[in-house]
Amino acid sequence: MSDRAAWEAVADWYHAWFTGIVLAAVARRGPADAAALVFAVFRRQQAETFLPGLRKLGLDGLPPAVAAARYHYLSNVIGGVGVEYVEENPRKAWIRYPPPRWIWPGATICGIPSEVNAAMLRGWHANNGVMLGCPGLGFVCTGQTVDGDPGLEGYYIEHDRALAEPDRLRFAKHEAMPRFDATRAPRLPTAAWPQERVAKARRGYAMTYCRTALQAAVDVFGVEQGGALLAHAARLVGLQHVHATAAALGARDFIAFMVALAQAEGDAARTDLQPDGSLVVRRDGCAPLRGIADPHPAMQDAWEALLHGALAGWDRFARLDRVGALAWRIRPG
Rank of each mutant, 00 (worst) to 15 (best):
G20P: 10
P178S: 02
A293S: 10
P332A: 10
R316F: 12
R4K: 10
G148V: 09
R91F: 12
A305S: 13
Q300K: 06
I109S: 05
R270H: 13
T271L: 11
E8G: 03
A35T: 05
M177D: 02
R44Y: 08
G30P: 05
Y156I: 03
R329C: 05
M1F: 11
R282T: 15
L311M: 12
G250Y: 06
A312V: 12
M299F: 08
D315H: 08
P275S: 08
E115L: 14
G133I: 08
F180L: 03
R184S: 14
T142C: 12
Q215M: 15
A5L: 14
F139Q: 07
A67L: 11
A93F: 03
E265H: 01
A256Q: 13
G154S: 00
E158H: 01
W328K: 02
A234S: 08
W303P: 00
G148W: 13
L273F: 03
D276N: 09
I103R: 15
R96D: 07
C134R: 12
L320Q: 02
H174T: 09
V10R: 00
R44V: 05
T108D: 08
E165N: 13
E304T: 12
A126V: 08
M120F: 11
A256M: 05
A256W: 03
A164C: 13
T19R: 14
A32Y: 08
Y85F: 14
L214R: 04
P194N: 03
L37H: 01
A176R: 15
A47T: 13
A5N: 08
R55H: 11
R270M: 12
N128K: 14
P31R: 06
A244C: 08
V280R: 15
D253M: 01
A16E: 14
E87S: 07
V237T: 14
R28Q: 15
A318M: 09
E224M: 09
T245K: 10
Q45M: 15
D167W: 10
E175A: 13
E158N: 01
W7K: 01
V259M: 02
